[in-house]
Write a protein that binds this DNA or RNA. Structure first.
Lengths: 198, 198
DNA sequence: CATCAAAGTAGAACGATGTTCTACAAAGGT
DNA sequence: ACCTTTGTAGAACATCGTTCTACTTTGATG
């Protein structure tokens, strides 16, 4: 994503919002959700702290914007799985999911944990979350239509898949996994899903 | 659990710790993790705020004690599944897991989300978390030994099951489920697990 | 029972955080 | 060029986690 660098002095009106969200993401990645404070973000963006309130209403609004970006990233990763073979497509999709989470642990943790719990979802955030899920539903529908998964509502099947991969990734990120090789464990999970949904 | 009620004046030494943990649980249930502050807990327990630091080192130590109780509750719920039939045992176990989470949403959210992320796990907490997982491993082992699940390391199989049920319950509690009937969806998840692990 | 150490309490204080408000200057639009 | 909008700097406030001090009460031991 294109970063709007602060140029010193006063940030142009049209650049304040993006500067703040960019900065918030950097702070989140560097210091975690606990380090994401209004002052830290403002300093990172070389913007006045009041900018957060002027543009996002409050800190929660800023966090929601960051989470929305997270879900957009997740949607892109999910939708990138476009192999012709339906089973391959689902496997790639599942691997992309984990890859995204491992590459963006702070985003992922905030999206489904404290960040989400603390925020009142904005319309943008809900739309982005819906879109990310829809990308999975699309891939499930592709597989069901081609007989790779048993007939059924793609939304419900996608929810089952989502539950499982989300659970696996969440526990892994939290350091709560109990097996020696998380990657192998995740592959076993994907196989289990395919076996259980055929 | 037996609540140690404050009797006014000065709390006896031997009762301070339990009074604080009891109070912390009440505050967690009532006001969520965000409302669990040192002062709120101390007031709830009618104990001086310094008691938190004297007995638990800091606020995180107190939170860890609360999380440990959560895992103990989860272990009890898991271990309560003791039907003779291995499949029934697993199903009951799975249903107990969800029941526990739905009955104690604030505990569950803290145990696997912000509470866990913010705390340095104490030995007690790790032991309790291990014990809860072991209860699941035991049930998986029971089913594997009787041919109800395919042969394999019970720990790895338990991890797969845990990932799925944890994911399902977490998304449900976060209001991120996308299906109309979460209970039915959860039953479908359990069936999928059995199908995928036979 | 007396003595002394340990520990609970009250209170103050400090830095950090989210938020609100004010006054001024610069940007943006017409 | 003029006027409105908006970014900035700074102050202030309540709350929170934490540390510290002084005093009182409890708890343990002889």
């Amino acid at each position: 994503m294109t970063d709007v660098s602060a140029t010193g002095g006063r940030t142009p009106s049209r650049a304040v919002e993006q500067a703040l969200v960019d900065a918030a993401e950097r702070v989140l990645v560097r210091d975690g959700l606990g380090g994401l404070t209004v002052r830290a973000v403002a300093a990172e963006a070389a913007v006045a702290p009041m900018g957060v309130y002027n543009r996002f209403g409050n800190k929660d609004g800023l966090v929601a914007a960051v989470l929305a970006r997270g879900f957009e990233g997740l949607r892109v990763a999910t939708a990138a799985a476009d192999d012709a073979d339906p089973v391959d497509r689902l496997l790639i999709c599942g691997r992309n999911y984990r890859r995204f989470a491992l590459d963006h642990p702070q985003h992922y943790g905030a999206m489904f944990g404290a960040g989400w719990a603390a925020t009142v979802p904005t319309e943008e955030l809900v739309d982005r979350a819906d879109a990310a899920f829809q990308a999975l539903v699309d891939r499930v529908g592709y597989a069901v239509d081609r007989g790779a998964l048993r007939p059924g509502d793609p939304v419900e099947t996608a929810q089952l898949i989502w539950s499982s991969v989300h659970g696996a990734v969440s526990l892994e990120l939290a350091g709560l996994g109990r097996t020696a090789d998380p990657a192998a464990g995740y592959e076993a999970l994907l196989r289990m899903l395919l076996d259980g949904l055929r």
